[in-house]
């Protein structure tokens, strides 16, 4: 049994400070285990949001040593324990208390995205026929657990605070899942460009790097959406072709 020091953010929406807690650590522990141990032994009032402890609920998102991570999936043996491990709330959202952030902005954003609009059913019994290949393309996006780590790491939200003009990687993935669906008939490209700020993304791929579900956010969702926006709004040749077709 050895010990490690955790430098945990304590505070609320008005401000706060880092406090050091030294606790025993053992093989197989993750950051969330250590935080729970500190909560039980030294800081009973430490606020932390968690649920499944299996990387599937997306509740325990925080920043460990400056990088957005799920605390339940960050093993202590992957961190340098010879110096304090910094644990702080996500920076892209307002802090409620300690490690808990208010992510409700995300739910409001989701409501603003044009919902799924399937074409008329293919069969008389009201069912549709789709090729497995076409559906598989959007299945990747459905793995999202809404941990919002991608939103947290995105510098457009994190550093530039453009929450009113930019929906963030999570909702580009959501939009791509709808937009590329073989049954969907709605067109979201104008909103993506004008209201949802897809042009703000400068392809740093930070969202892809932090995704615990390993969704290829930038290459498979955001860039294809950017290309669709170019088709619709900027490319004169595609515009011309569309005009002839219609």
């Amino acid at each position: 049994m050895s010990s490690a020091t955790f430098r945990i953010w304590r505070g609320d929406s008005e401000g706060g400070e880092f406090r050091d807690y030294t606790t025993e650590v053992s093989e197989g522990m993750v950051v969330l285990d250590a935080v729970h141990q500190i909560q039980a032994e030294q800081a009973n009032d430490l606020a932390v949001r968690w649920n499944c402890k299996a990387g599937k609920c997306g509740s325990c998102s925080a920043e460990v040593n400056g990088s957005p991570k799920l605390m339940c999936m960050t093993r202590l043996n992957s961190l340098p324990l010879d110096q304090p491990v910094t644990v702080e709330p996500m920076q892209a959202f307002p802090t409620v208390r300690d490690l808990v952030t208010d992510v409700s902005w995300n739910y409001e954003v989701k409501k603003a995205i044009k919902p799924f609009a399937p074409r008329e059913p293919d069969a008389a019994d009201g069912t549709w026929r789709m090729e497995q290949y076409d559906v598989e393309r959007v299945q990747e996006f459905r793995k999202c657990i809404e941990c919002f780590l991608c939103q947290d790491v995105c510098h457009v939200l994190r550093d530039h605070r453009l929450h009113s003009e930019f929906i963030g990687p999570r909702f580009f993935v959501y939009s791509a899942a709808l937009e590329m669906h073989p049954l969907d008939t709605a067109d979201r490209t104008t909103e993506l460009a004008d209201d949802h700020g897809v042009g703000y993304c400068n392809i740093t791929k930070c969202c892809t790097k932090v995704c615990p579900e390993e969704i290829t956010i930038t290459d498979n969702a955001i860039i294809p959406l950017k290309e669709r926006v170019v088709d619709k709004m900027y490319d004169p040749i595609t515009k011309l072709l569309r005009m002839f077709r219609s």
């Binding site: 920043e63 400056g66 990088s67 957005p68 920076q91 790491v153 510098h155 457009v156 994190r158 550093d159 530039h160 453009l162 700020g197 042009g199 703000y200 993304c201 400068n202 740093t204 930070c206 790097k209 932090v210």
Partner: peptide, 15 residues
């Protein structure tokens, strides 16, 4: 990723 930037203004590829 998650490192501070030199400028506060940002227009990206939007304009």
């Amino acid at each position: 990723c998650s490192v501070g930037e030199p400028r506060s203004s940002y227009r990206g590829e939007n304009s």
